[in-house]
């Protein structure tokens, strides 16, 4: 595994070449593995801590189906779904953020740009006020609201193709309108409902169980498979539309496809747990710094997302025990730290 190794080409970093399947750069692979293991480790930690403290060895036994019935109940029935959801949603958020940052070619690109969260909030408010407040109702409202908004923004920005800046500005405009609608609802509605909606708006994994894990796993799994099918096209799009088209990428269609996948991923996450800020923004950038890949890398972003969300959720549960914070509060703080780090790096670079 030297730098040129079995291949005759020096790629400037360690690469494992498997002809004819592909090349695997070593550093990103190692980082992904490390992040994955770290996420799993935190998962086990989350499974063992709580009102009932269970030693990690017993946790593992419970996962394997052995050990005391009480432990199995706590670990597998109560805590495991939440850990799995944190992992799955973290992957979804990391990938979604990565897609948006690659498409906008900007480290601050995020699904917020397309007004998704504001639209989801509108959906939730409409459902809460006119229909009811069950988990699935709210999730459906968020889904419909968010997707409809994303579609509207895309269509309004479409003029022989969608160009980055126009999409952002239209997203801002639509967000502003929907934001006003949301404000109006919040004022109109009674305090209880307004508070409930606001709490949803913070994002939380509280009270989620196996009923949520299965659809999320299917959704995220399918989207990942589709994403894989598109191969290296996202990286090619990052080189500019002309260069990508010259290499045989159908630019408009591919960009739309990625946009849809990115929106679908954030939709799954938001419907399941409410809007969780920052993971989508920070994960791809942190992953890129660690792996030193040129441009946005999907798998490391997913791994970093899983790690960040699992960590944040564990902190949300344990940091102010017994009060359970909404995970969105922890991720906002993480976000603040992340921005601070970005600024310090910027300061040093100058």
């Amino acid at each position: 595994m030297s730098r040129t190794g079995a291949s005759g080409v020096d790629f400037g970093r360690r690469v494992v070449v498997v002809r004819p399947v592909g090349r695997l750069p070593v550093r990103p692979a190692v980082v992904c593995l490390a992040l994955g293991l770290a996420a799993l480790a935190i998962g086990v930690l989350a499974l063992s801590t709580g009102e009932l403290s269970i030693p990690p060895a017993d946790v593992l036994r419970a996962l394997a189906g052995e050990g005391s019935g009480a432990y199995r109940l706590v670990v597998v029935e109560w805590r495991l779904p939440r850990v799995l959801l944190a992992l799955l949603l973290g992957v979804a958020l990391g990938l979604s953020g990565a897609i948006f940052q690659a498409l906008t070619r900007n480290p601050l690109g995020s699904p917020d740009v397309i007004g998704f969260n504001t639209g989801a909030y509108t959906g939730v408010l409409v459902v809460t006020v006119y229909v009811g407040t069950g988990y699935y109702l709210v999730a459906a409202g968020a889904l419909v609201g968010g997707l409809a908004t994303a579609a509207a923004v895309y269509l309004l920005a479409f003029k022989r193709g969608v160009q980055g800046f126009r999409l952002i500005i239209v997203g801002i405009a639509v967000s502003a309108v929907l934001g006003s609608v949301n404000q109006w609802f919040i004022i109109k509605v009674n305090l209880q409902a307004a508070l409930a909606a606001a709490i949803w708006g913070q994002g939380s994994l509280n009270g989620l169980g196996w009923g949520q894990v299965v659809p999320v796993a299917i959704g995220v799994g399918l989207l990942c498979v589709v994403l894989l099918g598109y191969g290296p096209r996202l990286a090619l799009l990052e080189m500019g539309e002309d260069a990508a088209a010259a290499l045989g990428v159908r630019v408009e269609a591919t960009r739309l496809a990625y946009l849809i996948i990115g929106v679908a991923l954030i939709a799954v996450a938001t419907a399941a747990a409410g809007p969780i800020s920052f993971v989508a923004l920070a994960a791809p950038q942190l992953a890129q710094r660690l792996t030193r890949t040129p441009g946005i890398a999907l798998v490391p972003s997913a791994a970093m997302g899983a790690f960040l969300l699992t960590l944040s959720d564990w902190l949300a549960q344990r940091a102010f025990a017994p009060t359970q914070l909404p995970v969105g509060v922890v991720t906002v703080s993480v976000g603040g730290l992340y921005f601070g780090w970005l600024l310090i790096r910027q300061g040093r670079a100058q």
């Binding site: 800046f165 606001a198 969105g328 976000g335």
Partner: peptide, 23 residues
């Protein structure tokens, strides 16, 4: 474009924190 994106991101953070305080 960078300023606009920064503004969107920052606005989202600050609104989020503001929301949190209010809760």
């Amino acid at each position: 474009i960078r300023l606009t994106l920064a503004g969107v991101a920052l606005g989202a953070v600050l609104d989020g924190v503001s929301s949190g305080i209010r809760l």
